[in-house]
Design a protein around this nucleic acid. Structure first.
Lengths: 124, 124
DNA sequence: TTGACATATGCCGATATGGGAATGTAATGT
DNA sequence: ACATTACATTCCCATATCGGCATATGTCAA
């Protein structure tokens, strides 16, 4: 199997930086495709393709007005992402507390060998 | 150019559903790889590969203990995602307000032809 | 109708993927 | 030393991508 389609869900659609830019640009107001092209400095076909992906997962909505199509981001579709990330909020707060406690401990103990704690960590 | 590498940033890493499951599983406590394999019902090499991606973008940390490696999710690395999504919070609140207002208007007006408003919308 | 404008789509090539199977490597037990 | 355990890496393959370029579709204007 290959990587999941970009249109499989909001997570995949949003993985592409340009699509995130488009979403930000279209967050406040409706815009025709041409304005996105100018604003982000992308090729028109490229923008159309990105919009297609965003539309398929419900991240943007379109409205036709004469020969142009007005896009706007559907913020509601970003909520699941926000909520998934929020799931981890308590954990990063824990980590911050631990950092804080370590800092305080260092002050109290005069910064004596706190390294021994994680001496066996190995990173990338 | 092809799609950006999954290790290019947290957004890409998190696009894969299994990786999200792994992050959730490793959020509360350190776990050896074997437990992830059992808990999520994936093949061991598959888990190792996902962990590699997550490690490369800093979403998990490892610690060696004897012959096993203990992984835990680094919640801090999820914050950027959370904050990016939070950027749109005010907009989905706007939308909710509009829905609410429409609902109230319907009650007041006795639900007379509110369809004419968006008659020219065209969706997927 | 003809032409200009605004978007969308199709085809191409280069690349990265994720699963499966096999193999590599490091630490432990006997 | 050897077998076992716990992970990581490699190879192969089918697939989906994104960008560039050309082209199709659809709308308005003269």
């Amino acid at each position: 199997m290959a990587r999941a389609s970009t249109t499989s869900d909001a997570f995949n659609a949003v993985a592409e930086p340009r699509r995130r830019e488009i979403l930000s640009f279209l967050a406040g107001a409706e815009r025709p495709v041409g304005e996105i092209v100018d604003a982000l400095g992308l090729e028109q076909p490229s923008v159309s393709k990105h919009l297609r992906v965003l539309r398929d997962v419900g991240l943007v909505r379109v409205r036709c007005q004469g020969r142009q199509k007005l896009y706007r981001t559907n913020a509601e579709a970003i909520r699941p992402l926000h909520e998934w990330a929020a799931t981890f909020e308590r954990y990063w707060q824990h980590q911050l507390n631990r950092v804080k406690e370590r800092a305080e401990a260092m002050v109290r103990l005069g910064a004596k060998d706190l390294n021994s704690k994680n001496a066996n960590e190995k990173e990338k």
